[in-house]
Design a protein around this nucleic acid. Structure first.
Length: 210
DNA sequence: CACTCGATGTTCT
DNA sequence: GAACATCGAGTGG
C-alpha cells in the first residue's frame, strides 16, 4: 500500500466515527474492555497506521501498580488530566508505551494499550519495526508504539482528535479474557485481574491462562 | 522452548 | 544504588 495521506474526512469515512470524550468517562475497567475491538489510528505525514485493540490493562487510584500511586510527578502528570488525555511514558529508558486517561481531571486512572491487530499502514509498520511477521508488529505495548510512531510528542495530547484517535468499528468486542497484569513485581498489584484481551486473538502480547 | 542479559530515563530508597 | 507497566539477541536444551 502507498503512503497516501488521507484527509480527516476520508479517514473517518473509511474507519468509522471517532469515539467521543464521554466514551472514556466511565469506570476504568469498563473502558478497558470497551476499547477491545475498536481501532487505534495515528495520522502522520509519512503515512497512516491503525490497528484493532486486542489487549488492554487498567490502572486505578489506590493501585500500587500505577505510576500515580505515590502522587503526581513530572513523568505521570498527564494521568491527572481530563478524560481522553494521552499519557505516554518511557520504559526501561528505551521504549515508549501509551495510556488513555478515563476519569475527571485530578483522578489519575488510565488504560494501557498492550496489543493491536495491524490493519492499515502495515508496510510502514514493518519498516519501523524491522520485522516482517504480522504477529510481531504490534503484540506488546512498546512494539505497537514503535509500529505506529507513538512517542513522547503525543504526551498530554487528546485521544478524541488527530493525530491519534480511536475509531468506532461498530463491532461488539466479542468474548473478553481477563487475567493479571504483565510485568508488575510481587506486592505491587500483580494479582489484580485488570488485564483484558480478545479471546483467541493471535496478536496478544501473551496468551491468557484458561 | 526456557532462560539470561544489556539497553538506560525516571523515580524511589 | 536499585527497580521498573519491555524488547531482542544470545545461549542451551
Amino acid at each position: 500500500m502507498s503512503g497516501a495521506f488521507l484527509s480527516e474526512t476520508d479517514v473517518e469515512c473509511a474507519l468509522g466515527p471517532v469515539l467521543p470524550r464521554e466514551f472514556y468517562l466511565r469506570p476504568t475497567v469498563e473502558v478497558a474492555q470497551a476499547l477491545l475491538g475498536q481501532l487505534l489510528v495515528h495520522q502522520q505525514p509519512e503515512g497512516l497506521t491503525a490497528g484493532l485493540i486486542v489487549e488492554t490493562e487498567a490502572y486505578l487510584v489506590g493501585d500500587p501498580g500505577s505510576h500515580a500511586w505515590r502522587g503526581r510527578t513530572v513523568r505521570n502528570a498527564a494521568m491527572f488530566g481530563p478524560p481522553g488525555t494521552i499519557y505516554t511514558y518511557r520504559i526501561y529508558g528505551v521504549h515508549w508505551c501509551v495510556n488513555l486517561v478515563t476519569q475527571p481531571e485530578g483522578v489519575p486512572e488510565a488504560v494501557l494499550i498492550r496489543a493491536l491487530e495491524p490493519v492499515a499502514g502495515i508496510e510502514l509498520m514493518r519498516r519501523r519495526r524491522g520485522v516482517a511477521r504480522l504477529q510481531d508488529l504490534c503484540s506488546g505495548p512498546a512494539r505497537l508504539c514503535q509500529a505506529l510512531g507513538i512517542t513522547d510528542a503525543l504526551n498530554w495530547g487528546d485521544i478524541t482528535s488527530p493525530p491519534l484517535w480511536v475509531a468506532d468499528t461498530g463491532r461488539p468486542p466479542g468474548q473478553v479474557c481477563v487475567g493479571t497484569r504483565i510485568g508488575l513485581p510481587i506486592g505491587k498489584g500483580h494479582e489484580a485481574p485488570l488485564r483484558f484481551g480478545l479471546a483467541g486473538s493471535p496478536f496478544l502480547s501473551r496468551k491468557f491462562a484458561d
